[in-house]
């Protein structure tokens, strides 16, 4: 059965660590990291990469346009 895999890339310098994407990710893939960007914000990162389905919810809710989403169909 084909499986959908996704991945996000967060622009660390644009992210302000507001956590809106963390709360709106249906798969709980995203978490705030332990490092800060040049402005001192803990930025979002893909903590559980294998669960991401590339649903784009995080990117369309991101108030700072910091997230790009990739999606691919994997044939088993």
């Amino acid at each position: 059965m084909a499986k959908i895999r996704g991945a996000i890339v967060v622009d660390a310098e644009r992210c302000k660590g507001c956590s809106v994407c963390v709360a709106n990710c249906p798969q709980q893939v995203i978490a705030l990291g332990k490092t800060v960007n040049s402005k001192g914000y803990y930025y979002a990162e893909m903590a559980f990469a294998d669960k991401c389905t590339g649903c784009v919810n995080c990117a369309i809710i991101c108030p700072d346009g910091a997230i790009s989403v990739y999606r691919v169909k994997v044939e088993n």
């Binding site: 644009r14 660590g17 108030p63 346009g65 910091a66 989403v69």
Partner: peptide, 23 residues
């Protein structure tokens, strides 16, 4: 595989809004 990226019509300057603002 790219399905979404922020619009190219944005200059790339970081928004001056507070973190999480709907603006």
């Amino acid at each position: 595989n790219l399905v979404y990226q922020p619009s190219k019509l944005l200059t790339g300057a970081a928004f001056n809004f507070c973190p999480g603002c709907g603006h």
